[in-house]
Design a protein around this nucleic acid. Sequence first.
DNA 1: TGAAATGTTGGGGCG
DNA 2: ACGCCCCAACATTTC
Length: 482
Amino acid sequence: MQTIIWWIRRDLRLRDNPALHAAVQAGAQVIPLFILDPKLLNSPYSSPRRQRFLFAGLQALHDDLRVKGSRLILRRGDPLAVLHSLIAELGGDCEIHAAEDYSPYAEKRDASVAADLPLRLFPGTTIRPAREVVKADGSPYTVFTPYSKAWLSRGDVGALLPVPARINTPRGIATDTLPEMEMDRSDTLFPSGEAEAQRRLQRFLDFLLDQYAQARDRMDLDGTSSLSPYLRFGMLSPRQAALMAEFAMQKAADAAVLHSAETWLNELIWREFYFSVLAHFPYVREMSFREEMRAIHWSNNEAAFAAWKRGETGYPVVDAAMRQLLATGWMHNRARMITASFFTKDLLIDWRWGEKFFMQHLLDGDPAANNGGWQWSAGTGTDAAPYFRVFNPVLQGQKFDPQGEYVRRWVPELQSVPDQYIHAPWLMPEDVVNVGKKYPAPIVDHALARERVLLVYGNRMNRKESGSKKKLLKLFAGADLP
DNA sequence: TGAAATGTTGGGGCG
DNA sequence: ACGCCCCAACATTTC
């Protein structure tokens, strides 16, 4: 009987899993294997909280496999070495099935495995394989809108694959144990595992999707899907999400509901886009996608960086967002844009520092999506926000947290600040109310910081006038800016 | 998937 | 009645 190793990396699910499904369909013995790779676990981009989420997900997967007559085999070590030794234990002649993974490290790892061993890669990390949607001449898209049009015109995404009725796994294969985990209070906000992913998907479809287009930007509301950690580890099939979006579009009762379903599908396509960008341009992990943006002279002020990380910038929306991240491992998407804009444009710190910090804290931290989001915000990436698009943290707060509920939830020292001043407490007259004493004053003046970043970025964009701009930059060097 | 600066318009107060 | 100014409201341009 044939033996197939189902090498699990970021597809911790039984439902709609092409690599697993093909192994079961082949009538093979299936060995579900997860390799604890020290290179990934000890990476400077890794996150203890995300690791806990992964380990809890592996435990849940093991439990789900038990129901199918199988179990999870864990091994620790270099993937190629682990695979070699496991195959030797099994008497050789195994095939390996895995879902594609597109980070530069993953692609190198898989190439080295494929050079030695029969590795078959399957889709499943993305809805469409990351190199499938390209222009007619085979070159990759670097602008979202034409990419999404091409993505949508590729026709249906195929049917969902069923959960295997039974998975035939031989007994007696040695397995390592998971590291001891200390649970954190924040872990209960995002319980790990495929079953939880399905519950959340159902809740989103039943109660939130109809309002999604309007509610998704409101930081004070529970209006997003909050599925990102589950998509990150493949506890939810992105194809299942897309099929649900399409189904909602078909049965939409009115234009607003239709628009909401389309908006959600569009977000899933943004995810596909960033996987495609990373697969085609792996260097974006190291540097700005746009060549002319690579020489920006960042301020990289350590004190400002530290204040941003702690959520003590003096801008309530920014601080609420950072504290939400620290407390829960998740941040609202609108808040990600605001904090990243503030980081790169107001503080003028290299986007790679912020990208790394997000990776160290986000449960959904994913190389492709996180890098894409940061380069978009910094204006250095594909189809990026224009360099002059600088978010005003006060106006963003007023627009997307109109009563300041989000701010008050995460910045308790502003609890009793009146709505009028909640996004700009420094404007509060002394006699209005004596609150917010412990809250810091803004670490930068936004208007001044905006002028500075327009100059610094503008110098990159248009070098002709750099003479007079250099003089102005000297002025800013003397100004009170980090 | 901005915001600020600048331009235009039109109503109302006022001499 | 008329011109002038102010300025809110909206539109356009610029960064």
